[in-house]
Write a protein that binds this DNA or RNA. Structure first.
Lengths: 86, 86
DNA sequence: TAGATATTTAGACAAATGTCTAAATAATAT
DNA sequence: ATATTATTTAGACATTTGTCTAAATATCTA
């Protein structure tokens, strides 16, 4: 839970998720969308991966990243507890 | 958006929200639930207030805090965008 | 095998964060 | 008025975070 909130607490990482919502992308393609160095993006991707929010798939020299929304279900469930009770 | 994620990115603050889910509490009552100094709790409450997640109401020398779930709707909406699209 | 391309790892550094103690502010009670 | 209670503000400090550059690793191509 902690690690998920941590991963989402950064604009760049949230934007990465929004990109991956539409289609899978390689690390390089993702980095091209930001004015941030590739190592920094790599670090962001690592945090997202640790949180289980993205999945990395190696394909030759490329690494394809895809979003994993099942992890978000846990967060959605956490948030909904506040709406249920009066 | 940013400030909401920031506010939720801390276990103590999330636990405060879970306490307030059941009933309104004063700053002192909230602080009593944690092994953290009152000034630190005060700071956490301030961040939650800035994010709009709680509302403070002064009543004499007490300040009653209550949860405001409408702000969470924005977050829920953000999260649901990932579930909608295929 | 060498060189180019894709990505990560390592290490440094400034800024942000969570915590504390001491002091300030405000309201209540004696 | 003074002391007590509730809460916040101020300032300090160690830890975490986001970023960078330089170097390492891995794959592909000529």
């Amino acid at each position: 839970m902690n690690i998920i909130f941590k991963a989402l607490n950064d604009t760049t990482r949230r934007e990465i998720l929004e990109l991956l919502k539409d289609r899978d992308m390689t690390a390089g393609e993702i980095a091209d969308q930001f004015n941030i160095s590739k190592p920094s993006i790599s670090h962001h991707l690592d945090l997202l991966k640790q949180a289980g929010l993205v999945i990395a798939n190696k394909d030759g020299q490329f690494i394809h990243y895809s979003i994993n929304t099942t992890v978000m279900d846990e967060m959605l469930k956490w948030m909904l507890q506040f709406k249920r009770k009066k």
